[in-house]
Design a binder for these strands. Structure first.
Length: 174
DNA sequence: CAATAGATCATCT
DNA sequence: GATGATCTATTGC
């Protein structure tokens, strides 16, 4: 354990079910995707490229495997804990690089496949409403996918250049 | 800054 | 046996 941390979600992507070939659940239920077919508000965490883990929030009713991939966080608290988990204690890396990518944020927050299926409305790992702050949203195609590479399903906080640096540097499409 | 290579393995065909 | 919702280091302009 390295300590607790808080981050604001500043970049996401939506994945649908059978109608979205880019989604893991497009073929239906498998051992891996079964939590996607469960109730909303739970975590779906999977291993990508054999090395990194990605966090999703199940976001549709039971039986409908819609989910939201969390792509980037703006670190809010516990920055040193995030830095420790990233192994960046003695490295010259800026705060905005701590969680500006799907694989980076899981490491920074200490999220692993052990959290797969966790209830995100209560417990150690929580996702909740933030402030009343208003912000503009931007939309673009999703990043790093082969199928449906032109669907506008990536959403991020826009209209604020100081926030964009907390978002991933990947370009849409593939 | 852009493009590329390599690491590394659970999952599904 | 091929694939992939990524990241880092490196090379080339």
């Amino acid at each position: 354990m390295h300590g607790s941390a808080v981050g604001r979600i500043v970049e996401t992507e939506a994945y649908l079910g059978l109608q979205d070939r880019a989604a893991h659940a497009w073929r239906g239920i498998t051992p891996r995707t079964k939590v996607l077919f469960g109730p909303a508000g739970h975590a779906y965490v999977y291993l990508i490229y054999g090395m990194y883990e990605c966090l999703n929030i199940v976001a549709d009713k039971e039986g409908e495997p819609g989910c939201v991939l969390i792509r980037a966080l703006e670190p809010v608290a516990g920055l040193s804990a995030m830095r420790k988990r990233r192994g960046l204690l003695n490295k010259d890396v800026r705060d905005h690089e701590l969680a500006n990518g799907p694989g980076k944020l899981t490491i920074a927050m200490g999220i692993t496949r052990a959290h797969n299926g966790a209830d995100l409305t209560r417990g150690r790992l929580v996702v909740c409403d933030g402030t009343e702050e208003k912000f503009e949203t931007g939309v673009s195609p999703r990043i790093g996918i082969r199928h449906n590479a032109d669907w506008p399903m990536r959403f991020y906080i826009a209209g604020n250049t100081s926030v964009s640096r907390f978002q991933s540097s990947g370009r849409p499409g593939r």
